[in-house]
């Protein structure tokens, strides 16, 4: 379990210098692990890690759902079109749009992770994180414009 270790290498350095005892160092507290973990100082990397997990779990759950929702293909045209009619309601369209948001975050952050691992990206991972958010929001809005192009045409 990810416990509360030293806050930063800087803290460790200053503490060894001042000869302070190890009791100042925060240790993992089993009783309050939720508040300890939530209280841990998070930079962009921690948030990326958290969001990557949440989106990943959601996407694998969606993959199972996707196989299930396409299964009427085996039963022919009428069954499949009836199922698809369900999914083209505005609520489902909105859910699909946010599914795209999850996909785009997981993809862009995944690319960021690969760059960090294989292309010396640790030196500029924070910039990459910011770039992926900007790019992600642009792609999200573009996808919204495509998905709801009929509705947008009615409006303008």
């Amino acid at each position: 379990m990810r416990g509360n270790y030293l806050r930063s290498p800087h803290t460790l350095e200053s503490e060894t210098k001042s000869q302070s005892t190890y009791k100042d160092i925060k240790t993992f507290d089993q009783k309050n692990w939720i508040s300890e973990n939530l209280g841990y100082k998070k930079d962009s990397g921690s948030w990326a890690w958290i969001f990557h997990r949440i989106t990943g779990i959601a996407l694998i759950a969606y993959l199972f759902l996707h196989v299930y929702s396409l299964s009427p293909l085996t039963k022919g045209e009428a069954a499949f079109n009836a199922k698809m009619a369900q999914f083209s309601s505005p609520i489902f369209m909105a859910i699909e749009w946010f599914l795209f948001a999850f996909v785009i975050f997981h993809s862009l952050n995944g690319i960021r992770i690969v760059i960090v691992d294989w292309a010396d990206g640790a030196k500029y991972h924070k910039q990459l994180y910011r770039i992926s958010w900007v790019l992600g929001i642009i792609l999200f809005l573009a996808m919204g414009a495509l998905m709801f192009s009929h509705e947008l045409k009615k409006l303008f």
Binding site: L73, G76, E77, F80, N81, M84, F87, S88, M93, F100, V103, S107, G110, I111, M143, L146, M147, F148, S149, H150
Partner: peptide, 22 residues
């Protein structure tokens, strides 16, 4: 999967009328 996903989105969802009928 990133490559496949881009292809999937372009082929399946570039327009609300595309690709959802039998």
């Amino acid at each position: 999967l990133v490559v496949l996903m881009i292809g999937h989105y372009i082929l399946m969802h570039y327009h609300p009328d595309s690709g959802h009928t039998y």
